[in-house]
């Protein structure tokens, strides 16, 4: 095992809440506000971990297991994700299938917890969550299939390593389309505008937020931290496709990877500032569109 590979997960553990801070700061700047401190999410997490909890009498152990299983799943997934050109801790053919499986487990746990409250708000949120993710998953995997074919490799680390500037020179449009598709999936999977609005305050319009209405204290801290880590995972995925990892030595690679992740966060912030949230009925079109882009890229990449 490469000791260097320990660095990406550790960085993710430390820096992922900062991503949310960066997004909020970008949004505030666009709106002409000063915005919350960059470290606000850390303060929130610290505060939540110090709190007690209130549970509904309707709930069972499923409600309590949701955040724990969700966070554990996303933590496990961290070990599969390379950063820039730094290889992941675990790499094997098909590791991204395990990654999507773990994210699926996280979703199942959260949906279970939401349904456990018996609240119709949370049931609605859960229903929308499975609806969106059922459409986002094909787009994600078709995009990955395109990348795998371009790189002729079957593990995330090797795909990232194999995609060099040569690929961008020769099949630039193919990779660009895939990156756009992955970006759309990132926005949908992480409950960002234009699919979901993390700042909305009306239960009926929420998706992710409404699922966690009844969670508080450490449970909610786990959820918040898990969401930050999930955003980091997707940002690292997009970054890994863009950085020509093969041509750099490890340390510049790491710096480039970090820079890429934060650039993605800034991009998310910009998108959230300049776009309105889509009507809910349009969301499938967005996600099927992402899949169509990735499939187009695949066809263009055929020899």
């Amino acid at each position: 095992m490469n000791l260097l590979s320990l660095i990406p997960p550790v960085l993710a553990l430390i820096l992922s809440p900062l991503l949310l801070g960066v997004i909020n700061r970008v949004k505030a700047r666009f709106a002409g506000r000063r915005g919350p401190p960059l470290l606000q999410v850390y303060y929130d997490l610290a505060k939540l971990l110090r709190k007690g909890a209130v549970y509904s009498r309707t709930t069972t152990w499923v409600f309590r297991a949701g955040p724990v299983v969700g966070l554990a799943a996303v933590l496990t997934a961290l070990c599969l994700m390379p950063l820039g050109g730094v290889p992941a801790l675990w790499k094997f053919p098909g590791d991204f299938i395990l990654l999507t499986g773990l994210l699926g487990l996280m979703r199942f746990a959260m949906v279970g917890a939401a349904l456990d409250t018996g609240s119709s708000f949370e049931g609605m949120g859960a229903s929308r969550e499975v609806w969106i993710s059922a459409l986002a998953e094909p787009a994600l995997l078709v995009a990955l299939a395109t990348l795998a074919r371009q790189a002729q490799e079957l593990s995330l680390t090797r795909i990232c390593a194999a995609l060099s500037e040569q690929h961008w020179l020769h099949t630039g449009p193919v990779l660009a389309l895939v990156v756009v598709a992955l970006g759309l999936v990132l926005l949908a999977e992480n409950a960002r505008i234009p699919v979901d609005d993390p700042n909305t305050h009306l239960e009926l319009t929420m998706i992710h937020e409404v699922m966690v209405l009844d969670h508080g204290g450490p449970d909610f801290a786990f959820i918040l931290y898990g969401a930050a880590l999930k955003l980091w995972l997707f940002a690292a995925l997009v970054t890994g496709m863009v950085i020509p990892a093969g041509s750099l030595s490890p340390w510049p690679n790491l710096v480039a990877g970090l820079g890429g992740v934060f650039l993605v966060a800034i991009g998310v912030g910009v998108v959230e500032s300049v776009m309105a949230r889509l009507r809910l009925l349009i969301v499938p079109q967005l996600l099927v569109g992402a899949g169509a882009l990735a499939a187009t890229a695949f066809l263009l990449g055929l020899k």
Partner: peptide, 30 residues
């Protein structure tokens, strides 16, 4: 690894909550 993490987080959550008030009430009903 997943099982170990689940167990670890569950224990951590339990210790965190052991020292604090844990209430039971109704589901958020708006």
């Amino acid at each position: 690894a997943l099982l170990v993490l689940v167990a670890g987080l569950a224990v951590w959550r339990k210790t965190l909550l052991a020292r604090r008030t844990v209430d039971a009430t109704v589901t958020w009903d708006c």
